[in-house]
Design a protein around this nucleic acid. Structure first.
Lengths: 237, 237
DNA sequence: AATTATTTTTAGACAAATCTAATAATTATA
DNA sequence: TATAATTATTAGATTTGTCTAAAAATAATT
């Protein structure tokens, strides 16, 4: 059995590269993620991220290149082609929308949904994605605070920055975390720091680069440099 | 990449045969369906149903047999083992719950959901299934009227029978259709005959074995033998 | 610049899932 | 019951995605 794309009639609605396998989609997603930091991505980095061997990656890069989803030059690294980029964004859109669904409708904790969303992101039906989007009332961020691309691949525009760069004594909203480990997410939950939480920086302790926060319920919270490092915020009035 | 089962900690919650591939799951489902009609199923029948060659089926039967999901004797046909049966039911449970979700929450038409559910049924997470079940308020039938097994594989008990065997002048509820073709489902929709619709048989026309129905809005509907054949009902008081 | 170390690619093999073509078993029929 | 027809299985090949081990290219270092 081959998993074929289920949208038959409407060519306009067929997502970019509907004929990709789960594995190919995962590679594209991986290359997308790594491309956030560097222009071109090395075979070795991908192998590390995908937990596979370099030779397997080379094989896959050839396949993806043949399908036009990446720009690949031997020994020179790889970047996403325009259509590969669109595909990656589409997968990320699905992943994040499903995460919202799992948390907001099925009452999962935000640190429990990643693995399930890894499976759901490969379901092929753009009508499904768009209806899910509508059902969830067009969320712009997932439970981790990551932005959700819209139908056309546009990321929501928003201004967020590392907590370390935030001004003191102004109300901030936690918009995103940049670490997905169970340990980190459980810590945040325990301290009631969640996406959407509001707080002020009351003090920056230079000695260990830690922060003293004041939460919206007037309680205080001390967080280490290591934690602050993985928190993004925006200013709220 | 191997798709591994995502439930790590709780052995009791791990579904039967969590390590099966999509393809293996599809074969089990197929054997389950065919087993409804006959005790043991032939290679040829499976091949026809799966739209593959006999030799491919033989190969797969060996694999499934090695995994203990089926009872297979060369040249003698095949039946589901106890665990294979449980697995098949679990897949069917997922399929039907997702169909309910798609229709009742995402507003798909009941004849649009099958293909998408074919994909969703392979998502591996029993916690997901059970929460979905709860979110949907533990539905007992899917949009086609097919019964949904519960957590433990028990089918809801209900008494339904072919429209042809139903008594005249008694209120009936349409509980199930036994034909999934687009044409049939669209016809039903057009005539406002849906799962849950209530009507009486007003007349049986012997000449062509067709039926004259009275719907709950007092309108009349004439349906052919061919249509009646694929409709199951139960008596409502 | 020459040598060493690292990274990347090739070559060859394997498992899953499929196929075609050939063979074997079973069933039906003359 | 012998022969024909049907059904099922094996043998061998293919594709996807992976691997190990060896070779080639690039980068780093003396």
């Amino acid at each position: 059995m081959t998993i074929q794309n289920t949208e038959s009639s409407l060519p306009a609605q067929v997502p970019p590269h509907a004929g990709l396998s789960f594995t190919e989609e995962n590679y594209l997603k991986c290359i997308y993620t790594l491309s956030q930091k560097e222009e071109t991505v090395s075979t070795r980095l991908i192998a590390k991220e995908m937990d596979s061997r370099d030779s397997s990656v080379t094989d896959m890069l050839k396949r993806l290149s043949a399908k036009g989803t990446i720009n690949y030059i031997k020994y020179k690294g790889v970047s996403l082609s325009e259509s590969g980029y669109a595909t990656a964004l589409h997968i990320i859109r699905k992943h994040r929308l499903w995460e919202v669904f799992l948390v907001s409708k099925l009452k999962f904790k935000w640190d429990e949904v990643h693995e399930i969303a890894e499976q759901l992101e490969h379901i092929k039906s753009s009508r499904l994605v768009d209806r899910l989007d509508e059902f969830l009332d067009f969320p712009r961020f997932d439970p981790h605070g990551d932005p959700i691309p819209d139908k056309d691949g546009n990321m929501p525009n928003y201004t967020q920055f590392p907590l370390q760069n935030a001004p003191q004594d102004q109300w901030l909203e936690l918009t995103r975390v940049t670490n997905d480990s169970q340990e980190f997410l459980r810590y945040l939950e325990q301290t009631h720091l969640l996406i959407g939480s509001r707080f002020k920086i009351k003090q920056f302790i230079e000695f260990d680069e830690s922060f003293m926060l004041e939460l919206s319920d007037n309680s205080s919270l001390h967080i280490s440099q290591k934690v602050a490092q993985h928190i993004l915020v925006r200013i709220t009035d």
